[in-house]
Simulated scan of single mutants.
Amino acid sequence: MHEVNQGKERIEKAVRREKTDRTPICLSGDFAFFQYAERSAIPADYVNKFPWALERALDALKQMKHIDAVSVLGITPGKALGAVWMSKTRLPGHELPPTASWQIEEVACMQMEDYDVIINKGWKYYQKYYFEHYLGLTEEELLLSGKYMAYTDRKLQEFGCINMTQMMGPIIYDGLCAGRGIVNFTRDLWKIPDKVKATLDVIAEEMLADFRRDLAALQQRCPGESIRVGIAPAVRGNCDFISPDKFEKFVWPLFQAEADAVLEVGGTPYFHMDANWTKVLDYFKVFPANRCIFDSDGMTDIYKIKEALGDRMCITGNISAALMSLGTPDQVYKEAKKQIADLGPNGFIASGSCTLPHNTKPENIDAIIAACIE
C-alpha cells in the first residue's frame, strides 16, 4: 500500500524544486498497468471489458506501491476518444485486430469556407455539426469517455497515488489543425494567416471561458490544494512543424493563456510537451519559478530542457518507449539512474516518454521503481 499523502508531498516538493526523501515517480499507461496485473491481457480486453480492466489497472498500481502519481488514467476507450482532435477512433477488436493499439484516424473534413462559419457562428456550433455529420458521434458517446474519471480519482486517493492531471486544458490549435487536415492547415498558415488567427481567437475565447469555469469548480472541490492541470493546446505547433515566428503568432498565446488561467487559481501547470520544442524553450521562462512542470517525451533533448528551464521548473524524465518495450530491466534501471543523477535530485520526477507503450514489460516498470527507491 502506498504511504498516504507521501506521494502528493513528494510531487509538490519536486514542483518547488525542494529536496525529497527519494525521487518521485509519475507514470502514464492505462493498458500497461492493466497488463501488469493481467500478464496475458491484450488491448481488445481493455476496450471490451473496460470497467473490469480499469479495476485491474488500479490493482496493479496498488501492487507497485511506490508510484507517486499517474496521468490520464480512467478514460473510457470508446468511439469518442479522438473527438478533441476532430478525428475518428479505431479500436482493437473492432476496426483493428485485437492485439493492435487503438488509433486516432484523422478525417479532415473541414473546408476553407468553414473558417467563416466558425468566426460568425462560433466554435461550439461548428464542433457539434462536425461531430454529428462527419464523426457520427452522439452526445451520449461524447460523455462516455469521462464517465469513470471521478471514480478513478477517488480510487487513487484511497491508496495515496495522486492524479497528476486532474483536468486537461483545451486542445485548441490541434483540434482546428486536425479538422482541416495537417497539409491543408499548414498551407492556410501561409495563404490566409489572418483568417486562421481570427478563427483560433474565436475558439480560444469560447474554450477558455469554459476552462476557467471548470478550474474554479475543481479548486472548490480541492480546497487548499494546488490543483494540477495538463496544458497541451498545440502539439502540432512544435519546432518540427512550424517556424519560431509562426509559433509566436499562432501557438504561444494559447500556452500562455491556459497556463496563466491555472496559475491565477493557485494551480500547477503541467506542460505535456510531446514532440520537439527545443527552439522555443526560452518562451517558458516567463512563468513564475517553482510553479510548473515540463513533461517531455524524448523528442526535445532533456538536457536542453534542463539547461533552459532547470532553475525554474520541475522536469520529468523520459525513459523511451523503445526501452520500456524492448529493453532489459538492467538497461531501464541504468537509464533511470543516469537521469536521476544528471537531472535531479531536486526538481525532477522519474517518468516514461509520454505514455508507456502497450507492450511495456512489467519488469521494466519495476526497474524504474527500483532505481528511484534504492
Rank of each mutant, 00 (worst) to 15 (best):
Q6Y: 08
G7F: 01
R10H: 10
E12R: 01
E12D: 11
E18W: 03
I25C: 10
G29I: 08
P43V: 12
D45K: 08
F50D: 07
F50T: 10
P51C: 10
P51E: 08
L54D: 06
E55R: 10
K65P: 01
I67D: 02
I67R: 04
I67W: 04
A69R: 07
A69G: 07
V70C: 09
L81G: 05
P92A: 06
H94C: 09
P97N: 11
A100P: 04
A100I: 04
W102S: 09
Q103H: 06
M110A: 14
M112W: 08
M112F: 09
D116T: 06
I118D: 01
K124G: 10
Y129R: 12
L135H: 01
L137Y: 05
L137P: 02
E140Y: 08
E141H: 03
L144A: 15
M149R: 15
A150C: 06
D153L: 10
L156T: 05
L156A: 05
C161G: 04
I171L: 14
D174K: 03
G175V: 00
G175N: 09
K197H: 15
T199D: 14
L200V: 01
V202C: 01
F211M: 06
R213P: 00
D214G: 00
S226Y: 02
V229N: 08
N238I: 00
S243L: 00
F247P: 02
F250T: 10
Q256D: 13
L263P: 09
V265I: 15
G267W: 04
T268L: 08
P269A: 11
H272C: 06
M273I: 09
T278Y: 07
T278W: 02
Y283L: 09
V286T: 12
V286F: 08
N290Q: 13
C292F: 02
D297V: 08
D297P: 02
M299A: 14
M299W: 09
T300K: 05
E307Q: 14
A308N: 06
C314M: 08
S320E: 00
A322R: 11
A322S: 13
M324K: 07
M324L: 15
S325W: 03
G327F: 07
G327N: 04
T328S: 13
Q331F: 01
V332Q: 00
A336C: 12
A336Y: 04
A336P: 01
Q339W: 03
D342I: 06
N346E: 15
L356P: 04
P357S: 02
N359V: 07
K361W: 05
E363A: 13
A371K: 01
